[in-house]
């Protein structure tokens, strides 16, 4: 953390959804700089635009105006192949609904991105097993998703997100479908991985359990950045939340 390099930079991003004749302003000019290796939480109430911002950063959707830079590359300039490559190698996605591919085993889910990246089958299987062990479900490698609990599925998803050693892990409400303890375990796992591997974790959430582990919290309200707090300032506002309740 000697020098500050921005892995993600978002400038003046707006997003308008057209619903028939009505325009929905989901994002109203977001500016954001995210440094490499940090654990970032994007916090905000439901409907505030977290998922929309997440999709912009992940190259899953295009902003109406403004730019998103990953590693100082404007992702609007990328063609379909480069975007696929970016999704495959640079970014790992984690979803609220886990999204383990139903017809594949845990191991096959983890190896798929490596196959896409051109890795040989044996190497991919070796690495897949290592990753499954890293997230603590090495013994479940041959299980299909429906044989796994929610927490276990999310662990498979985390292992899969790490498959090609991405620079960024994007997680949209990763604990949204998990109970309290399982959610906490997944958060701890993400935090540990971010520290051990220097991965930048960006997580959209309204789960306050995330606050403890975040290096930075971006509060979003109604499509705008409300405030950005670093770890040190955070304890104060958590204190405030505590006293308010």
């Amino acid at each position: 953390m000697a020098e500050k390099t921005n892995i993600v930079r978002v400038t003046n991003v707006t997003k308008v959804f057209k619903l028939g004749k009505i325009d929905v302003d989901a994002l109203k000019g977001i500016n954001l700089e995210i440094s490499r290796g940090n654990y970032i939480s994007i916090m905000g109430p439901s409907g505030s635009g977290k998922s929309t911002l997440f999709n912009m950063i992940g190259g899953l959707d295009k902003p109406t105006s403004g730019k998103v830079y990953i590693d100082e590359v404007d992702i609007a300039q990328l063609d379909a192949y480069e975007l696929a490559w970016l999704r495959c190698r640079k970014i790992g996605y984690i979803f609220q609904t886990f999204n383990i591919i139903q017809v594949m085993t845990a191991l096959e889910n983890v190896t798929l991105p490596m196959i896409f990246a051109g890795m040989g089958n044996d190497a991919a299987v070796d690495k897949g097993m290592q990753l499954l062990e890293l997230v603590g479900i090495g013994d479940r490698y041959s299980h299909k998703p429906f044989e796994l609990s929610g927490g276990q599925q999310q662990r498979v998803a985390i292992a899969r997100a790490l498959a090609n050693d991405p620079a960024i892990i994007l997680a949209d409400e990763p604990t949204g479908n998990l109970d309290l303890t399982t959610g906490e375990e997944c958060i701890a796992l993400l935090k540990r991985l971010s520290q051990e591997r220097g991965v930048t974790v960006i997580s959209a959430t309204h789960d306050f359990k995330m606050l403890n582990v975040s290096d930075q919290v971006v509060w979003i309200r109604d499509g705008r950045v409300d405030k950005i707090e670093d770890r040190e300032e955070l304890s104060i506002s958590i204190g405030q939340i505590g006293t308010k309740e």
């Binding site: 379909a80 696929a84 490559w85 999704r87 999204n99 139903q102 896409f116 990246a117 899969r160």
Partner: peptide
């Protein structure tokens, strides 16, 4: 839809 979308998030091209 979810399976297809997820594969694309993992880097699959249209032609895959």
């Amino acid at each position: 839809f979810r399976e297809i979308g997820t594969m694309k998030c993992l880097g699959a091209l249209d032609r895959f």
